[in-house]
């Protein structure tokens, strides 16, 4: 279970920002947008193990 370092209010604002950015990207570009975002966050985070762990978390239960 991931320990989040964001408070609930910030998480909600990011949730909205992501949803709106996905809408602006549109179906054609949403996947590339998410891939860019993931790479950018990974470069920021700089911890390979944590990034691979995040990939595993995100891949879980895609079709529960």
């Amino acid at each position: 279970m991931l320990e989040s370092s964001l408070d609930d209010a910030a998480l909600e604002r990011i949730y909205d920002a992501l949803a709106e950015a996905l809408d602006r990207s549109g179906r054609e570009h949403e996947a590339v947008f998410l891939a860019k975002l993931a790479l950018t966050l990974a470069a920021r985070l700089g911890n390979e193990a944590e990034i691979l762990d995040a990939i595993a978390i995100a891949e879980r239960d895609l079709d529960p």
């Binding site: 996947a31 590339v32 891939a35 860019k36 993931a38 790479l39 950018t40 470069a43």
Partner: peptide, 17 residues
């Protein structure tokens, strides 16, 4: 394919990629 496009698109402005 997606990851490559992501890297190319990022690289227009970001050096890290």
């Amino acid at each position: 394919d997606l990851m490559r496009d992501a890297v190319l698109s990022l690289s227009l402005t970001e050096t890290f990629a």
